[in-house]
Amino acid sequence: MHMADALISPAVGGVMWTATAGLIAYSAKKVSIEADDRKVPLMGVLGAFIFAAQMINFTIPATGSSGHLGGGMILAILLGPYAAFLVMASVLIVQALFFADGGLLALGCNIFNLGFFSCFVAYPLIYRRVVGQKSTQGRILVGAVISAIVGLQLGALSVVLETVFSGISELPFHTFVLLMQPIHLAIGIVEGLVTAAVVTFVWKARSEIVRASRNAVPIGKVSMKKVLVGLFAAAVIAGGTLSWFASSNPDGLEWAIFRTTGKEELETPHNLHVALAKVQEKTAFLPDYSIKKSEDEKTPGADAKAPWPAVDPGTSVSGLVGGSLTLFMVVLMGVGLRRRKGQS
């Protein structure tokens, strides 16, 4: 499930990009340290394989609906977590650029949701443990199914959290969770079965490939922890700065913080609001959207919508009129530019 630019706030997008960029840099370093020359072409070509395989639809048994491969686990099993994460990121980048799946800001979220959990959580903590040193068909099956389910559940949960924290969509947290998790349980089972079958297929034909990747990638426990701590810190900093800088509607975020921590208003956001309100007054952007609203909403139990502040209807209507006119002018300008270009 792809996140879309339209659904996330810059704060969430920025935090997820920071985390993703950090993971890419770290994985790239790890891969270059591994210095397995063969991996250079192998990674690219396997990415192309996943890309191509994702386009082939198959019918899911007993449902009649159709699905396609995700591929995160297959990559992790064949390449090890670091290389697999880079490949997954590449696949998503191309999809974002060419098929507009998600968009550039949401790309950070998407890479994280679809890459991080399968490569750095499900693969090392579940698949490797289950399969161990001796691959057997049964172990591959169990390992792949459980880790695909876990990876997708976490990914889906992450989509929900990102959406809720962004506060662009009105979908309440519990509804969204109830919508996403069961669907992704089904998807996870199918993904796991397909992963296991494809890996077993290759393992039977070329056992050395599956074995080689397993030996090549020791996961350093210490370094991983460091990285996670570093990522967390970077994400918090980025999130703080960005939300101060950019988010003009932080109530979604706060609402979620309130929900998750169960605490009263955090200190900083309040100051933020004052600062933000000042900026808003000065620049008078969005005059029809009073900052008071978010103050109102911050009372506990804000689920039930606080009454809206009175909006001067004239302002909104003139916004609409002006907007239409602007659109008209923009289009006119485009046509004009094209004409002129055609003549020259």
């Binding site: 890419i24 840099a25 994985s27 790239a28 370093k29 891969v31 270059s32 250079v40 072409p41 990674m43 690219g44 070509v45 990415g47 192309a48 394989f49 890309f51 191509a52 395989a53 386009m55 082939i56 290389a83 880079l86 490949v87 990121a89 590449s90 696949v91 980048i93 191309v94």
Partner: peptide, 24 residues
């Protein structure tokens, strides 16, 4: 400043999309 290991594999990936989608 994106790491080279990543960009190189991105280029490889893009190059072989055409070959592999064709094959698929």
């Amino acid at each position: 400043g994106v790491p080279k290991a990543f960009v190189v594999q991105l280029l490889f990936f893009y190059r072989y999309i055409f070959v592999l989608t064709d094959e698929a």
